[in-house]
Write a protein that binds this DNA or RNA. Structure first.
Lengths: 225, 225
DNA sequence: GCGATGCTTCGATTAGCGTCGAAGCATGAA
DNA sequence: TTCATGCTTCGACGCTAATCGAAGCATCGC
């Protein structure tokens, strides 16, 4: 009856508090150094180093050297998506870190999920695109329809001009606060940075919170209907 | 930066091999006794008892007493969904338990995911329903459109006649083998048991595999297009 | 009533792993 | 070169948690 992939080692990897803190910090999408992550996790540099090694062996994170610094990131969307899934389950059990403080509310409104937008705004965006028939499902996953292309182009973005990568253009990611899908993948990433460039949203330092500007709110309302 | 729900305790709960085996066994959707689960996990009854207690404290499983037996099940879709998510990530890292044996292929074709259908067939079903506009997203999640009602009724099922519960009617669940959504929720459950009644699919004992009958294949082909 | 079965609690053992101090090794700055 | 910074390796400590034997407690069948 032991069917399917082995989840024990993977879950055990995430299951240590220090490592979970490291992963959560990396969900901001920013590349962080080993010392920064050690501080985030609340452990010494030696301990963090050991954890980082394990996470890297488990292919959850990767690093690139820059001078004497080591910048760590999640290995990709897949990891972020699975972590959001775990957060979703944890949230239903009231395992919130802070008892629904004001910060928590801000997280629900809009936040960064690795490199794309999540929260209420992220789900609204995805739903709106879906409603106008922007997506089509193919054998290999989600793809953009002509309507989808138009929508993206209206935002001043050329889907074909995105940096090529083996990551899919569109991917759905389950939102832990909304329990619905939002858009991930290369397009999700591009849209978030576009919104930042336009000044519609801005990252709050040292957190995953995205603050929606007054102008952003107006624009989103008019675009997403 | 420690934003969002606390995933460490949850992941640690899943991260023990014995407990992971228990949870995987329960993904079949069948209620299993403590001794059966002990056997699945490869530990003694005492050890299993301890694990079951922890899983229950963590609200991942629940039990109901029946005579001198204790039947355990997952607490709901949410749990199954998160576990499938973990399997998805584990699968991308080649953490397959068996090196793509024939059993693995059967799992990918069609399998039980707690109480609904997953795998290729599950994704095909969901995609087909989506293509004919069966779903509509509301503030509370996924809902059936009139077209959706028609589709379900054509299968001899009355969506309004389903046993009421606080679980949503429709819910999407991310498939670990297809990396796309399939249908969960009360409707997902009802559809699977309908397919079983019709003799289109049959559960393979002691596994999550769903075997599609010759007739089932034909029917699915004609219905799902 | 009696024994068998299913499961739990208790207690003791053990192993694994997270933790940090100290030392080592690069890179960068002075 | 010399010192500081960022990070890793080594070694030792300590604690948690998984494990099982033995005993206890229900329930079922006779």
């Amino acid at each position: 009856m032991k069917d399917g992939p082995n989840i024990a080692t993977l879950a055990a990897l995430i299951g240590d508090p220090a490592r979970a803190n490291i992963l959560t910090a990396l969900m901001s999408g920013k590349a962080l150094t080993a010392s920064e992550l050690a501080h985030e996790a609340g452990v010494t540099a030696q301990t963090a180093s050991s954890h980082l090694r394990k996470l890297e062996d488990g292919a959850l994170i990767a690093h690139r050297q820059q001078g004497r610094h080591r910048y760590f990131t999640l290995t990709g969307d897949e990891v972020a998506r699975a972590l959001e899934g775990l957060m979703g389950l944890a949230a239903t059990q009231g395992q919130l870190r802070t008892r629904t403080g004001p910060k928590d509310q801000e997280l629900r409104t809009a936040r960064v999920c690795y490199n794309h937008m999540a929260g209420e705004m992220g789900v609204r965006l995805y739903r709106s695109m879906q409603d106008r028939g922007a997506f089509r499902t193919t054998h290999s996953g989600l793809d953009l329809t002509p309507q989808g292309y138009d929508f993206v182009r209206d935002l001043g973005l050329n889907p074909d001009g995105l940096p090529p990568s083996r990551a899919p253009l569109c991917r759905e990611c389950l939102d832990w606060s909304m329990r619905q899908s939002h858009l991930a993948g290369r397009l999700g990433r591009a849209l978030l940075s576009r919104f930042e460039d336009l000044g519609w949203v801005a990252r709050v330092p040292d957190s995953r919170i995205l603050r929606v500007s007054r102008r952003g709110e107006k624009e989103f309302d008019s675009i997403l209907g």
